[in-house]
Structures are given as structure tokens and as C-alpha cells.
Amino acid sequence: MIIAVASGKGGTGKTTVTASLAVTWPQPVLAVDLDVEEPNLHLFLQPEILTTEPVTLEVPEVNEDLCTYCRKCAELCQFKAISVMGQVIMTFPEMCHGCGGCMAICPEHAITPGARELGVMEVGLSRGHIHCLTGRLRIGEAMSPPLMRHVRSHMRAQSAQHGYDVLVDAPPGVSCPAMTAVADADVIVLVTEPTPFGFHDFALAWEAFAPYAKPMGVVINRAGLGDTRVYDFCAQHNLPVLTEIPYRRDIAEHYSHGRILAERDDQMRQQFTALGQSIRQMAQEADHA
């Protein structure tokens, strides 16, 4: 089972919820940070890092001895990553999306795969039983989707091989990276806060993810702050509010020390244990439907 924790707006508590679910989830569980631009889950789970693997994208390298400057590669490339001017061929590896088209179309086999470093994938273990997987984009690298693809394929393989349940900390927003992160999920948990910004981005996220027709539930963080529109929206769209985290300064301070909310006290532990149960029940009901 794969559970994606997503939000629309950043900073609503995705990582807090993911980490708290991870420490209260029945074993074995795999916690995956797909917010590769700003991965934060490891700051809370503090896994022992077992392996760090560089992740690269296949980009073109041209053997000019073989190139006839026929321009077929440049005409195919949609990303201006390869260009031919007269008897000069140039590649711009940072523009490349790694589609492999230039290599496939070159009649002289003059283009071979080189590599651009996208970042790293870290495999770790937290508390002796929470398996952790993190994608970390290289600073200066513009494209997060190819690194995310690599982490996701590792995630699916691990889950299939070991029977792990998977908790995914998704990137914010509703564009390609966020959609990609929830595409694998059996259940989507939307974390929001009852403020105008929180509500606006929550509604965007709901609109974006609803076409997947996956079971969706809502966690309202900082409950008591702002207004009631998130609640009205959930009632209107039959979205279950799975749990609420109250707006309290002591909770914000607990978080500011890098501590996991579910480990704060018995009441919080029970609350997140119950949240996990509700999520598993949603997945089962969807299975039987």
C-alpha cells in the first residue's frame, strides 16, 4: 500500500504528518521523501544512512569523427540541448531532458550516452525498523522529475520485494512533481491549514488530484487558526477530515526542535495511530468497492 502525503501549499505540515505516521505505522514501513528540492523528512526521522547513490540523467555525447552534421538530432530535440551550425555541433547538457531521441535518430551512431548529475538517492534506517529513502537534488540542477522517477522506481521495487507499506512525503504544489508523487498512491492524504492561503491551495490540490479517483482524506493542521472554509469545502465534497492538529505554540516549539509530533506524548501517539488506522481502512474500502 502506498500513501501519499500532499498539500498544495508548502509548510502546512506534510513532513510532520509523514514522520508521525512513520513512527506509529505497523512494520515494515518505508518512508520516502519525494520533495527532492527541499527534502526534510530525514531531519525528523534522522535515519542512519546506509547508502548514498549518485543519480544521473543520460545526456548526449557526440563523436565528431562520426558526425556528418545532418541535423537530424537538432531537429528532433525539443529542448535546445543539441544544435548544429554548419560544421559545428554543440550540446547543452543542462537543457537535456534525457529522452534519448538524438541517440536513437542519429544515422551514424555518433551520439553516445553521457551523464549529468541530478543529485543523490539516500537509503537509510530510522529507529531500527523504519526504512527511509530520500532524493536530494543537486543545488543548481533545475529538473526534479528525473530524480523523482529514479527514487520512485526504487521505492516500487522495494515495496514489491519486501511487502513494505510506503509513506510518501510529496513536494508542494499541484504541478508535474506533485502530481507524479501522488500518481503511485493508493490513498492521498491532504494536509492543510484553515487559513485563506491554506484553503486556496488545498482546493487547487483537490481539483488536481480528484481526476485520479483515489481515496482522499484530509488532515487539518493549526486547527483553530483562520476561518472555517476548509471544513465547509470538505463537507460539500464528502472529503473526510481524518484528524486535526490544534494550533498551539507549544506544538510549534516542539516541531522547531526537530521532534516528531507523534512522539510528544501518549495522546499524540494515539491520535496518529488512529490516523494510520483510518488511512488503512480507506484503502481497504476502496479495494472492496
Binding site: E38, F44, A142, M143, P172
Partner: peptide, 26 residues
């Protein structure tokens, strides 16, 4: 948010990046 393509594009020809942070590990 983030450090990817949209943020990189927003820095082009910028005179000053005002970075807002909070005192938490993240």
C-alpha cells in the same frame, strides 16, 4: 518554494533575493 527550475528562473537578473526563513530544522 524549492530550489528547482521555477526558482532558478526567478533569480535571473535579480538584484536581491530576500530569503524568508524560520528557526526550525527544516
Amino acid at each position: 518554494p524549492g530550489i528547482g527550475c521555477p526558482v532558478i528562473a526567478s533569480l535571473s537578473q535579480t538584484d536581491l533575493a530576500v530569503v524568508v526563513t524560520e528557526p526550525t530544522p527544516s
